[in-house]
Simulated scan of single mutants.
Amino acid sequence: MISVHLDGQRFQVRAAAIILHAGHVLVHRAPGDTYWALPGGRVEVGEEASATIVREMREELGEEVGCGPLLHIAENFFDLAGRRNHEIGFYFLVSLGEDSQHLDKTRSYRGIENHLELEFRWFPVAELPFINLRPTFLPASLAADPMVFSHAVQREYH
């Protein structure tokens, strides 16, 4: 995975899935997290970011997905667990199969990332400003109609 520690910071390259269905978006969080994020993971060396999405959804949800167009590139600067992070994020529009077992909006789903059990949940796009979704540019960009390509620089520290 592309994740290195330099000068007291972690630098990483991440690919994330924007999974929309019936006015909802699928997000996830790890145990103990107070925030939600789009599912995805770190890009492996030599791996295309779109392939990261397919691999991560297979690993975390056991789901085969279709990876569509790149919608956002984000430069994220944030603190996590007492460490500064600099992340380059690629955000792709992703579709689940029509026969997916993960389309019921009334329940949460469990997924696995390494040894962590993840919680996946659908939220109405209109409610995203009221949940702790990271990075914070996402609620407005996901509500845009039509959604257009964007480049965001998100700084939680200076």
Rank of each mutant, 00 (worst) to 15 (best):
D145C: 03
R121N: 13
V45G: 11
P135Y: 06
W36L: 09
E59F: 04
E75K: 13
H151P: 00
L93I: 04
A17M: 08
L70G: 05
I88M: 13
A30S: 12
E117V: 07
V54Y: 00
H115W: 15
M1H: 11
G41M: 13
G23Y: 12
H5W: 05
G111H: 13
E44I: 05
S95F: 05
E64M: 00
G62F: 09
F149M: 05
E127G: 00
G46H: 11
M1N: 12
P39L: 03
P135S: 01
S3T: 12
A152Y: 04
A140Q: 13
H102R: 13
S108K: 15
I88Y: 02
P69M: 08
Q12A: 14
P31Q: 15
L38Q: 01
S150Q: 14
R83L: 12
R121F: 01
D104T: 08
E75G: 14
V43I: 08
N76S: 15
F11P: 07
E47V: 07
M147Q: 10
H28P: 02
A152P: 07
E127Q: 08
L128V: 10
L6G: 06
V43R: 01
I88K: 08
S141W: 02
V65P: 03
G111A: 13
L26Y: 06
E127L: 10
E64D: 14
V94Y: 00
P129D: 12
K105C: 14
G23P: 13
T34I: 08
T52M: 03
R29C: 14
A22H: 15
V65W: 02
E113I: 02
F123V: 08
Q12T: 11
N114S: 15
S108N: 14
R84D: 10
L20Y: 04
E87Y: 01
I112V: 15
R10W: 06
A152G: 05
V153E: 13
L138A: 00
E48F: 10
A15Q: 05
I131L: 12
H115K: 15
H115P: 00
E44S: 06
I19M: 10
E75W: 04
S100P: 07
H86G: 04
H24T: 08
R83H: 07
H5E: 15
Y91E: 01
A74I: 12
D99M: 06
E56M: 01
Y109M: 09
D99W: 05
D33I: 01
V65E: 02
